[in-house]
């Protein structure tokens, strides 16, 4: 199982955001897309899930060319995708239970009891039991992220996209969320792509790291290789803080 990004270009007006980006993401690895603010990593993820249309190039999900599909054809692939948004993107008007059940209500033929069982299983899996009736406004930042993960896995996705899953969280909760995503990836055998600029995530989990700079793929490798990279932009980004510089030494 893999997702191939082939020579994609994306611009907004006169601004070229992605330029000839080619990269392959495979199952079983923690795939990280990293880069500074405005580097184009969120645009890349949004192109991959079809929220933005690419100007040129292809996005291929297991030999299925997503870029050339129309809305109806994409629907099948989209039902195999789970996404955790930066802010959670939980539906404000629905409680936790209904948020997680939303996709099941729309696409499954499960009975109410079966759907409820699935919701409770997902909530247990993200270590959030007994919050079914709470609304998003009643949840903390970390809880929102966990509910978002629960919603993303409710439909048993093949592909999981996480857009800065630990932004705005304290370091301890960030690690909890990172570990949770890693566990879920291995346990459910899914292809996970995480968009992040959290260095702890990069060092701890980066089994396949793609560094985007100025809309181009600048470097690709693993967390073990980041210390030996001879690339100024990459090193300036990764080892920006004193503690990271010490770590490199």
């Amino acid at each position: 199982m893999k997702i191939e990004v082939k020579n994609i270009y994306k611009s907004f007006g006169n601004k070229q955001v992605l330029e000839d980006v080619s990269v392959t993401f495979e199952k079983g690895k923690m795939n990280l897309v990293i880069g500074g603010s405005g580097s184009g990593k969120t645009v890349l993820i949004k192109c991959m899930v079809g929220l933005y249309e690419v100007d040129k190039g292809q996005i291929v999900y297991d030999d299925r060319n997503f870029s050339d599909m129309d809305f109806k054809e994409r629907k099948h692939i989209r039902q195999e995708i789970g996404m955790v948004f930066q802010g959670g993107a939980l539906f404000d008007s629905l409680n936790v239970e209904k948020n997680i059940m939303f996709g099941l209500n729309m696409f499954s033929t499960m009975s109410r009891e079966e759907k409820l069982d699935r919701v409770n299983f997902c909530l247990q899996r993200v270590n959030l039991p007994n919050v079914n009736k709470l609304f998003p406004s009643e949840l903390s930042g970390g809880m929102k992220k966990r509910v978002a993960i629960a919603r993303a896995i409710a439909m048993k996705p093949k592909y999981l996209f996480c857009d800065e899953p630990n932004s705005g969280l304290d370091p301890r909760t960030s690690i909890v969320i990172d570990n949770l995503i890693e566990e879920i990836t291995k346990e459910f055998d899914i292809l996970t792509i995480i968009n992040t600029h959290d260095m702890n995530t990069v060092v701890e989990m980066g089994e396949n790291i793609v560094y985007i700079h100025k809309g181009k793929v600048w470097w690709e490798g693993t967390n073990h290789e980041i210390y030996d990279v001879d690339n100024k932009e990459f090193n300036d980004f990764i080892f920006a803080s004193r503690i990271m510089k010490k770590l490199k030494k």
């Binding site: 949004k46 899930v49 079809g50 929220l51 809305f71 994409r74 629907k75 099948h76 989209r78 039902q79 995708i81 996404m83 948004f85 930066q86 802010g87 993107a89 939980l90 539906f91 404000d92 939303f102 996709g103 729309m106 696409f107 439909m155 996209f161």
Partner: peptide
């Protein structure tokens, strides 16, 4: 508008919902 800027509409689209 709020659903759009908080990515709730994007979340619907990714689920394959019109």
């Amino acid at each position: 508008g709020t659903m759009r800027v908080t990515e709730q509409i994007d979340a619907l689209e990714i689920m394959g919902i019109n």
